[in-house]
Design a protein around this nucleic acid. Structure first.
Lengths: 132, 132
DNA sequence: CTATATGTACTATTATGCATAGTACATATC
DNA sequence: GATATGTACTATGCATAATAGTACATATAG
């Protein structure tokens, strides 16, 4: 469940952050669920507790989880807000180099869009307007 | 033309690589065109010649440019091949975390797809099947 | 209160990547 | 020969990531 893919260029703490985000989006982790303790998770993925703590702190800053001192860390309630322009601009900046390489390698728009749709579906992303 | 956007988290040499790829895709740089010399470009962007050299070497490994010893570096002929599965898998891995955050921030599929289309259009990416 | 588990803070150390400075060299051109 | 090209090399500085180890405030169970 918390197994890391082992991409060496991606920092461990960043991999943890991504993994937890994925699990919450997929619904595997639901609001209120307890996450492994820092020490537990550090043992699972064979890393330093400080590294896991760093990941948890970043996740808390992002509002993904909540830490209750002395108790543990828990998945936070999902707050749905309209993404502001700063966030969108940042996402587009991150998307850009991927598209650059895709175009360079001859990937066609239709195929790339298919990848996007698949990813959205896997993550339960909303495809259109809010459902009322 | 070679001005860097100054994103601090992106290494200089990586910014150069992206910039050259963009310029070739947009058609600003055409096959056979001469690039600035290592020393020239390093002066333009105020960086070390070694840093520019590193970028050029990576671009040559990718087949974007060719270096003729003693003469300079030139834009290579664009070889169009069907991207193999390894490249596609790599691109999808790079796309994935962007989509994760997009979904988390509430970006809808339609808007994200619009971003993709815009990027493809800017880069002259092919939108459908080859034109015969 | 005691013992335990929680996240966190702190210092110190190591490893890696990025960038710089400076020098040098083989190749090509004039 | 002089110059311009990309490249190789060593050395240094700096930031980030990760580790090891210790310690502390908080919460909970006995």
């Amino acid at each position: 469940m918390f197994r890391l893919d082992g991409r060496q260029n991606v920092p461990i703490y960043e991999q943890v952050v991504r993994r937890v985000k994925e699990l919450t989006l997929r619904g595997v982790l639901k609001p209120g669920d307890k996450l492994p303790t820092v020490r537990e998770l550090s043992a699972m993925i064979v890393a330093n507790p400080n590294t896991v703590s760093k990941a948890y702190q970043e996740l808390e800053r992002s509002g993904v989880i909540e830490t209750r001192p002395g108790k543990g860390t828990f998945v936070a309630e999902r707050i749905r807000v309209e993404p502001d322009e700063r966030i969108k601009a940042d996402l587009r900046e991150r998307l850009w180099p991927v598209v650059v390489d895709a175009v360079y390698f001859g990937v066609r728009l239709k195929e790339f869009e298919a990848w996007v749709r698949e990813a959205f579906n896997e993550l339960g992303g909303e495809s259109g307007e809010p459902k009322a």
